[in-house]
Write a protein that binds this DNA or RNA. Structure first.
Length: 297
DNA sequence: AGCTGTGTTGAA
DNA sequence: TCAACACAGCTG
């Protein structure tokens, strides 16, 4: 049966880009959706406010996608009182449980990376109601593909990882159409914690190199990846769906060169939840949630 | 070079 | 709290 390939979408086939007739700023006027703002290039941004500050939810090619992102964030931030855009939002108890099982920062991160749908689906599959956190795939369920010790430029400002040619051609083959268009593909990976990462993967003629591009810098930041650390690629052993994995082996850091690990888009007023978070039955129990609370105006 | 997402403002 | 507008600086 169609096992729903998770592996790669072709990057926006360019059919969706609305034709911009007027070069003036913000030609779109405004959106009919709450939390959705037009971008100068005809795309759509999504944002939600909390505590006087804006939390950016990412940009989207289609207005409805931005509206959906706002809905998801609103359900997580405001629970029942959430005013949502699209019909049916918030009517799925499993999704609500999934939302409750993740911190605001995690949900926002998924929205900005466009991995929310994937992670929700996988979370629900692993299911069990509220326990729907991502889970690591054990080593025995994977087959190693290749490793690379990252170079300074791999973790620098270039926002790209050079994949050694022989490894790329053997393990990360992408369709010829993707190469032809020069656009590349988007590849989903999972890390050791079961978190989904999405990277652009393309071939740069200028440098004759296969590279992981879009999304790579985020991975570097969040993992605190530094030159000479090693990243390991693998894929699942079972199923024909080659779920890809990426993990990093940090080199033993000298006491002096600790890298500050920055967390992704920490919305103000909330602690990032990566490392040790107070969690009970997979639910945050810090003052983050939607418990009833006296609400003086 | 183009785009994202922040700075900022004024209205609701 | 919210979106309009402008644009610095990040990203592909």
């Amino acid at each position: 049966p169609p096992g729903c390939a998770v592996v790669g979408d072709v990057i926006s086939p360019a059919g969706e880009q609305a034709v911009r007739s007027q070069p003036s700023a913000v030609p779109q006027g405004s959106s009919r959706f709450k939390g959705v703002v037009p971008q100068p290039n005809g795309r759509w941004g999504a944002q939600i406010y909390e505590r006087h500050t804006r939390v950016w939810l990412g940009t989207f090619a289609v207005e409805e996608a931005a509206a959906r992102a706002y809905d998801v964030a609103a359900l997580r931030y405001r629970c029942h009182e959430a005013a949502t855009n699209l019909p049916g939002a918030g009517e799925s108890p499993p999704e609500l449980a999934f939302l409750a099982a993740h911190s605001k920062a995690e949900i926002v991160d998924m929205l900005r990376k466009h991995t929310y749908a994937d992670e929700l689906r996988q979370g629900l599959r692993r299911g069990r109601g509220m326990g729907a956190r991502a889970q690591p795939t054990p080593a025995w369920a994977r087959v190693p593909l290749f490793e690379k010790a990252v170079t300074p430029s791999d973790v620098g400002k270039l926002n790209r990882l050079v994949v050694p040619k022989h490894h790329a051609e053997k393990h990360l083959k992408h369709g010829p159409e993707a190469v032809a268009t020069g656009k590349g593909v988007l590849l989903n990976f999972k890390d050791g914690e079961g978190k989904v990462w999405r990277f652009g993967y393309s071939y740069w003629n200028s440098s004759q190199s296969h590279v992981l591009t879009k999304g790579w810098n985020r991975f570097v930041r969040e993992k605190g990846l530094r030159a000479r650390d090693t990243i390991v690629f693998s894929h699942s052993t079972y199923g024909s769906e080659k779920q890809l994995f990426i993990d990093c082996k940090k080199t033993k850091a000298a006491a002096t060169d600790r890298a500050p690990v920055r967390m992704p888009v920490p919305p103000p007023g909330e602690k990032p939840s990566k490392a040790r978070v107070v969690r009970l039955f997979a639910v945050d129990i810090a003052g983050d949630g939607c418990q009833k609370r006296a609400r003086p105006v």
